[in-house]
Write a protein that binds this DNA or RNA. Sequence first.
DNA 1: CATGAATGAGAATTCATTCAT
DNA 2: TATGAATGAATTCTCATTCAT
Lengths: 205, 205, 205, 205
Amino acid sequence: MAYQRSALMQERLAENRERILRSARALIARGGFREASITAVAADAGLSTGAIYRYFPSKAELFVEVLTEAVRRECDILREIIGRPGTAGQRLRAAVDSFARRALEGPYLAYAFIAEPTDPEVEAARILCRQEFSEVFKTVLRQGISTGEFPRQPVDVSAACIVGAFTEALVRPVAPTTPRSKDERLIEAIVDFCARAVSGPARQA
Amino acid sequence: MAYQRSALMQERLAENRERILRSARALIARGGFREASITAVAADAGLSTGAIYRYFPSKAELFVEVLTEAVRRECDILREIIGRPGTAGQRLRAAVDSFARRALEGPYLAYAFIAEPTDPEVEAARILCRQEFSEVFKTVLRQGISTGEFPRQPVDVSAACIVGAFTEALVRPVAPTTPRSKDERLIEAIVDFCARAVSGPARQA
Amino acid sequence: MAYQRSALMQERLAENRERILRSARALIARGGFREASITAVAADAGLSTGAIYRYFPSKAELFVEVLTEAVRRECDILREIIGRPGTAGQRLRAAVDSFARRALEGPYLAYAFIAEPTDPEVEAARILCRQEFSEVFKTVLRQGISTGEFPRQPVDVSAACIVGAFTEALVRPVAPTTPRSKDERLIEAIVDFCARAVSGPARQA
Amino acid sequence: MAYQRSALMQERLAENRERILRSARALIARGGFREASITAVAADAGLSTGAIYRYFPSKAELFVEVLTEAVRRECDILREIIGRPGTAGQRLRAAVDSFARRALEGPYLAYAFIAEPTDPEVEAARILCRQEFSEVFKTVLRQGISTGEFPRQPVDVSAACIVGAFTEALVRPVAPTTPRSKDERLIEAIVDFCARAVSGPARQA
DNA sequence: CATGAATGAGAATTCATTCAT
DNA sequence: TATGAATGAATTCTCATTCAT
């Protein structure tokens, strides 16, 4: 009975879903969760409000997916970088550099990371995302400590500090007029800051 | 009839204004901007909603004042600490320690400094607050660099990183079950992280 | 601090509440729960939709109150009638007569009784209402049985049947053109029906 | 191309139509009109929502047909029972018993006969259904009165009362835990009630 | 000047109906 | 002819802001 769902239709569905996610992400990035109403997302995606609910059961779940998808992508890249050969310090620097570079191109993630959500469900997801992020950095921290390259330090706190440091440093220059050359210096400074922070001398009592 | 505003009345007005600010701050600290509706603020302050609008022209401006006032206080304390005698490193450590300690008592307020803009007006104020914050840390960073205690580094980026680092590290343990003893270790770890970050060895070419 | 809520205001509040209930009742009676949207109730009561929520926490609770209030009034009257002196048969007839008479003037109650609920919360209240109704009739049935005036019968079923019988018989002539004289005959017929039903001869085996 | 509608196709169309009606009826019986959305009906019938509109011009007309068809079936059965040999009392008892028995198996459908109008169009049909129902009972009432078996009474009112009586009595025990044995007693009590009501002694002046 | 009831625009969500494929 | 994605009006409910008392 059921007509074969044509490949064309399949594609359009997937495309719509992606468009909704993209619109939500863009709106969140621009004006925070506040600006990303269902009406706004639908308008931006060129769909009706009702259509959104064919793809996502609720606003909260749409936002959760925006968040987790962004974090998952980022973490995949970071994990790959951290898995490369080299000293822990080199790999940490590479990871921070890579993250900062992408964040400057589209400060979406940094925002989603910080932005206070309107919804407890989304808030819960945000916390999980930050933990997943920290987890990646903890890996390289532990390696550096075990080889004696880094001084002993609570890896969870250091990881959180790293995430916070570059997030804060990156969110600022959202203004569209930041020149490209400044970006390079900013990235370098952040990378240096984090590298020193984890590898500097242990506190002398 | 009497247009002379009596001293008693003057005082009561100032007292009400203060109470509103206190209530707004407390509510934001407890549950973020989300929980701080005008109705809730008014109820907490023991006033009517209408009364709020006699002291503040809009919700946005009330929040802006909460933010700037909180930051001003904080900066005053930090400036005082940084102005004390001692090495730049010691004073930076003391400043971060002091900030972290207060932030742990009302975690959401620290959060609000970087949190989601409820309103473009509030967002503007938030950016200014972060800059003012950074400014304080820049002072001690410049001093440390000029005496050779810290390596050369872009003070604005380092300052932003410091703010970001401890904000991120502090926001996490919002869970109500964090034991007091853990707080001490957390603060120490953050202080160490920041101290290493600014004083660690310059990157070897 | 708090201004005395003037008697005038007190009165207006009570009046508004009553007006909302009246509007809800009228709309339910006219077109069932379906027609009684918050917007419609507010418009009918001459208030804004938001105002409704100052008096009732939700649509469901408003409807529950409409239902229970109507049933309470009715049951009070019926209990009074049933408590009068006379035989069980006389009192039952008087109760049915009284109910039918009021129902014909404003078929609100009969409607609310039958109307399919929009909401599980309202449905629960509706069931309780029907039970309370039946309870009243059970009283007089038990008395009649104990004195031998009525034959033995399951009082709960008989009570439900009585309620159903006159509800069904009354709901029909909602049309506004029913002449007054026909009402009298209708009431008499219903009363007779119920009287026979409870007092008729026991089934001969 | 071939405009001849083949017998096979004819059959499939009729089958689909029947399936839609069956699904709608089942859903209404289970959870009332509320649960019977077009989407739900389509899903249950194994068809698309669009297909529904090929067989029925609107949701209202589908429901009207469900109602009238169910009533027609019921009335056919009742008419058959009433047409059997025996006294009017015996036949009335048999009819009520039969109806009650089927209603207990799907209580919500009996309910739908008197329930809330989802739609003015459906409401109109509902009233007609009730009248058709009453008509059947009027037949046996008239017979009983003409033979002197029943006292004189307005047959239309009595018929309505009978319908109302057992509907109300049957709708109550919707709770899924009602034991089967209680059903028998309930049916018996309803039958007795109705029998007494129509055959009891005329009111003594 | 204080009050808090009232406003009303706007939010998320649902669902009968349509129409391109 | 069948499909089901898309529509969009309608629903309930929230909350910053106003204004009669």
